[in-house]
Each structure stands twice: as structure tokens, then as C-alpha cells.
Design a protein around this nucleic acid. Structure first.
Lengths: 212, 212
DNA sequence: TTGTGTGAATCCCTTCACAGCG
DNA sequence: CGCTGTGAAGGGATTCACACAA
């Protein structure tokens, strides 16, 4: 019984982890897993695995465990990976290029249909067949390709403006690499990736541990 | 009274946010902030700001608010940013180069003292004066420079091995870009950055919203 | 017997509300 | 009076423990 409850952000990350773990297990030839084994692959517990899955239905067999193949398909469906997501990359800098070449990127169904940048020297060149278009084409590109997700790999000063334009043009979600809090409409999910903040979390923990 | 409580991961991220907001406020010439204004800059509440700060002491003045300059210094101290952190980058690929060139990186006190890579063509070349050294030099580099943090920008297949070697050589924390769950000693903090997982969180939320 | 699915208990984080200080 | 600092209340998420199905 797939209940319509609010799912926490960390729970969603765990679902991603489970999927990745299942892929590994399948590669090792496993046809079945227990919640305990699945928990061992991530940093979580068997009870947590069962509870997470129970929010979406009952996929396992008592006394046996979960069918790897079936659970993978279920998780893909839950995470929305059973379709192609059209993505535009805004900002053809280093972060953008790193993302663009990320191996899992395409394998997971994320199709980068276009790249947009403000640098006149980059406009017109192409990455692996995808041409870099001028910044002002953003709205046109979003509508032309019926884009779902927009990746913001632009300087902090430009991020808010790009975000607003992207959402107004029809983007359904944003992945933001700029160190600013974006203000967008309520229904539009935004995921922030802030590399310096990750380092700060590390130095905090190390500092804290030393003090104890 | 700085209590020795366990601080949640999300609380630490909020502290980073506060620091960034304070920098902006200072740039705008503000000498004082209330918890309410600080809350408005991030996506949080005034009560949350006060509670977060209260874990480390009482930095504000009742009826007045917080002194921007002073609170910034306190936060820097709490996050461990009042010192230089020596960092080694493992993996001179695209993600590595993006990180290496990240502007805030050095400004926050993270000094990338060395780069290590396995590719013979890259070894010996240099990025902005920092020479790329062979993979087997990792331990030597960590000890030579008394390195604190190691950034893993390597393929998933290599990550666990590099992590173990780094920790054994004396690294105190890891920033991991490979999509694997690293197993390291208990006292070693690991922060994971998984770009595909961020996209999955987006597609989950969009899929969920559509279904409702 | 094994291992899931799930209410109950527990823990932790956020929010509330207000005493108290400037 | 204004706004912080903080105990208390509230809510969510994790953990426990066990009935039940294979």
C-alpha cells in the first residue's frame, strides 16, 4: 500500500544507496537479498531498510528476503528513473565539464540535451557533439527540448537570475552548484551542492574530535 | 558555556550558511544582526539560529542582536577555519580540476599542497605551480606535508584502496567523490559527494509531486 | 525456521513561549 | 521595549520487538 506520506530527504538518499548496492549484488550474481545484507552495504540498519521500503509497499517475501531484480525495478520506479530526464547545463566551466563527463550521468537516464554559456569564446564550440549556445538562449532551449532539470554551474552572482529564468521557462527542478540560497517557487525542488561546505563539515568534525 | 554535545550534520551545514550570510551582511555594511534577519538569509527560523548558536556559547546581546564581526570570528573558530588545512587531491581528472580551481577553496584556508594521479601522461605536469606526482607517492606526500584532508576524485574501483592508504598514512578526514561507501577507521570523518544522487533526489521529488 | 512488515517505544531535532538582560 | 538564551512541548525519524507469512 503506497501511502502518500512525506518522505524525508535522507530517506531518499538511502533509497539511492540501496539501488546502487543492488546493482553491485546483481553483478555478483545474487538473486536475493535480506534487509540485513542490504544494510551492510550502506551505513544503516536492517530495520531502517525495511521501514524505508515499507513506505512504498511490501516488496519482500517473509523468510526469504527481496528479489534483487524486482526490488531494483521498484526502486527505479520510486526514484523516477524509469524515464529519460532532459537536462540543460548552464555554465561550461570546469564544474560543468566534470558533470557532463560523469559516467553514471547518462547511464541513469539523464540526457544533457544542451549546454548554455555566456563566454563568447565557448559559444559555438561543442562537447561530444553537444553545441554550446549563448546564455540568452536559455528560455528557448528549455522550451524547445521540453527540459526537466537545469544544472546551474555558474558564478554565485549569476545564479539567482538564471534560476528564475529557468523556472519561468518551465524547468521542474534545479541542481545548484553556486554558493547562494536560491529563491524559487514553492513547487520547484532545488538541490544544492556546495563543495566548500563539505570541507567545512570535515574540519568541524576533526576540530571537535581533537577538543574532546 | 560550550557544552560537549553531539552536533547533528545538518546543524553544521547551517553554521556554514550563517557564516556565508554574515559575510554578505558585512559587505552591505551591517554591524549587527538579529537571529530573525540571519534566518531570513538561509531557509530557517530565528529560533533555530539561536538554538544552533546556543550549543557553543552566548554570542549575542539581548535586545540588540549579534555583532557581525564577532559572530563571524566565533563561527570560524567553531568550524575550524581559523587555521590552514593542508589538502591533497588524488585524481587529476575533471572533478579534481574543478575543485582545484574553486575560488572559495583557498579563501577558506584550504591549501592544496599536492596533487597525485596514476596517469603517466599527467605525472610531472603541473597545475598553477602544483606538480602532479605519481599515485604511489601518496603516503610520502601525506607525511611530507603533514596533510590533514585527502580529496578522492578517483574512479569508484580505486577509491577504497586510496582511502585506506591515505588514512594509514595519517589523513584525518576524507572528501569522497566516488560512488562507493568507504570503510575507514571510526575516528575518521568522511563526507560523500555524489552528483548523480543529487539528480535522483530531484527526479524523486518531481515524480512524487506529479503523482499527488 | 527464517526474515519481512509494522505498531510501540525511544531518541533526537525543531518549534514554542517566555523569563531575563541590555 | 527588543531580542537573546533556554527549558518545555511537539513532531519526526530511528530502533525495538514480535506477529505472521513462506
Amino acid at each position: 500500500m503506497p501511502v502518500s506520506r512525506r518522505i524525508s530527504d535522507s530517506a531518499v538518499r538511502r533509497l539511492s544507496h540501496y539501488l546502487r548496492a543492488l546493482e553491485t549484488i546483481q553483478g555478483e550474481g545474487g538473486g536475493t537479498v535480506s534487509s540485513e545484507e542490504l544494510a551492510g552495504r550502506g551505513h544503516t540498519t536492517a530495520a531502517q531498510v525495511r521501514k524505508d521500503l515499507s513506505h512504498f509497499g511490501s516488496f519482500g517475501k517473509r523468510g526469504l528476503g527481496y528479489n534483487v531484480q524486482e526490488l531494483m525495478e521498484r526502486l527505479r520506479g520510486i526514484l523516477g528513473l524509469d524515464r529519460i530526464w532532459r537536462v540543460v547545463l548552464v555554465g561550461a566551466g570546469r564544474i560543468g565539464s566534470a558533470l557532463f563527463e560523469y559516467p553514471d550521468f547518462k547511464a541513469r537516464g539523464y540526457d544533457c540535451v544542451a549546454i548554455v554559456d555566456a563566454d563568447p569564446e565557448k559559444i559555438g564550440t561543442s562537447w561530444g557533439g553537444t553545441v554550446i549556445r549563448p546564455a540568452e538562449d536559455l528560455e528557448a532551449v528549455v522550451q524547445e527540448y521540453d527540459v526537466d532539470l537545469v544544472i546551474l554551474a555558474v558564478p554565485a552572482s549569476a545564479a539567482q537570475d538564471v534560476a528564475k529564468r529557468a523556472v519561468d521557462a518551465g524547468a521542474k527542478g534545479l541542481l545548484n552548484f553556486a554558493p547562494v540560497q536560491l529563491v524559487v517557487g514553492d513547487g520547484i525542488p532545488v538541490e544544492d551542492v556546495n563543495l566548500v561546505m563539505e570541507l567545512e563539515a570535515l574540519s568541524f568534525q576533526i576540530t571537535r574530535a581533537d577538543a574532546t
